[in-house]
Nucleic acid binder design. Structure first.
Lengths: 182, 182
DNA sequence: ACCCTAGCTGACCGATCGGCCAGTTCTGAC
DNA sequence: GTCAGAACTGGCCGATCGGTCAGCTAGGGT
């Protein structure tokens, strides 16, 4: 079956973003994308110059929105800047949910390993403990966010020595959940 | 040079966790680890049965601590459970900072791409906007954590429809930063 | 009916990967 | 000094990767 160039182009991108988000860029082969899109690997490289070009095209709208956000922030300060920053981040993450997930690949594939306990069960137990008797969905969202936020913060670069960071992480996580920080 | 088995074993693990954290599991070859550890690739496979065994051994202490945390939580509830959960997560992330980072590989390599604006500069501008006139290091940690929390929450599974999620993300990010949620 | 071209493909290439194996070197016990 | 075994290595293998190429095919314009 021969489809129009623009149709095939779009279908390849759709397959690529889904597979990249699920298995990561390195974890997805051209053959995987081709099979998912229902064409041959050679046909992929007829529509895109190489594998990297697919990723480039997937990320370019993200880059555009990031650049716009930066421009918007440059013209603001104080409370306006803070609210614009939050709004910009929320919109970015909602508009490009799958693209963002590409950056976090391997989490799904690495997290279920025999040497780790049942991570899903532990997550559920942690969220239960963090939300207490409040089963409100937004409370659960923030319980999960506090969890991953703690992990990501510790993995990143920061200037706080460990004891202070430990205390600050604990304080902030409780504050995120709307609890007392005694 | 021939080293003792336990010494070589430890040096390989040290090289592996550093390289895995920097370039990811798939992005690190046995030759990379061998070069870093100062031995041949064949020597690696003398000390470890295969590449996966290296990762398994790296993650096993994480698994042990996760299992202990789960056991601890099972015996608590209410406010005690919440505080134990936060403390457990903080300790986990601080003790196994590099191991956690393995799960987040590709972030560094994917984040600096020509189609994206200068991500470091944008991050700095966002943190500035979120912390306002407070240059306190813990405020900057939480600004950054709120950012990545937003992204991770959007990338994960959740039950809230988009408009509610958008509002809740904005509210929670501001709360994390200790600001009014009007 | 003819043809030209966009769309597509199977077969193949070089590079790199994880892993294997025969054989060499080192070292401590005797 | 001898020697057995632990430690180590160069070279090789099959599989898989991204990418190339010559050629096939469908279909709209004339």
């Amino acid at each position: 079956m021969t489809r129009s160039a623009t149709t095939m182009h779009a279908e390849i991108l759709e397959s690529a973003v889904r597979l990249f988000a699920a298995h990561g860029f390195r974890g997805t082969s051209l053959q995987d994308i081709a099979s998912d899109a229902g064409c041959s690997k050679a046909s992929l490289l007829y529509h895109f110059t190489n594998k990297d070009a697919i990723l480039t095209e997937l990320l370019s709208p993200v880059g555009r929105e990031m650049a716009e956000l930066e421009g918007r922030l440059a013209a603001l300060d104080g409370e306006d800047a803070a609210r614009a920053a939050v709004a910009g981040l929320v919109d970015l993450s909602l508009h490009f949910r799958r693209q963002v997930k590409i950056l976090l690949q391997d989490v799904d594939s690495l997290i279920n390993r025999p040497e780790l306990p049942d991570v899903d069960a532990l997550t559920e137990r942690l969220v239960d403990a963090l939300t207490g008797r409040s089963p409100a969905p937004q409370a659960r969202v923030w319980a999960w966010m506090a969890m991953v936020g703690i992990f990501l913060t510790s993995a990143g670069e920061h200037a706080l020595p460990d004891p202070e960071l430990r205390a600050e992480l604990t304080r902030g996580a409780l504050r995120t959940l709307g609890r007392q920080t005694d």
